[in-house]
Amino acid sequence: MPVIHMRVNGNPVSGEVEARTLLVQFLRDDLRLTGTHVGCDTSQCGACVVHVDGKSVKSCTMLAIMANDCEVMTIEGLANGSELHPMQQAFMDNHGLQCGFCTPGMVMSALDIVERNGNDLDEATIRKELTGNICRCTGYHNIVKAVKAGARAMGD
């Protein structure tokens, strides 16, 4: 079995994986980073979004070996000690989560939206950009508010 190496949330990790092992399986099952979730099997729900070399990726759609030598960031890597990242804080302040299952993917996607669209986001942009993330609980209303507020806070 191939051995792979990567940095996850700044820490060097390595592991032996089958060629068919998905990145999300490596993160969840091998590294026990279970904050990244699996909600579907067709790359639709976005519960599994992580960043690979700074780009947002659906980790259910990438083989672990494709992330060899990459820099991977997951939801577990965002907070600074006990201080939440401004986007995480915005989700809490705006009640942008209910069951929390879609949340890690939503937050990781939100950061990518800010990265590509800046800190001053309008509702239409946020809604269009979030179509790769499904939430069954919130009706999106408060997620949209959270992303807008989080984006602004990240600019401060």
Binding site: T34, G35, T74, I75, E76, A79, G100
Partner: peptide
Amino acid sequence: DKRYLIGKGNY
């Protein structure tokens, strides 16, 4: 919320 937001939910 905190545990969900930092990836420490326990599903």
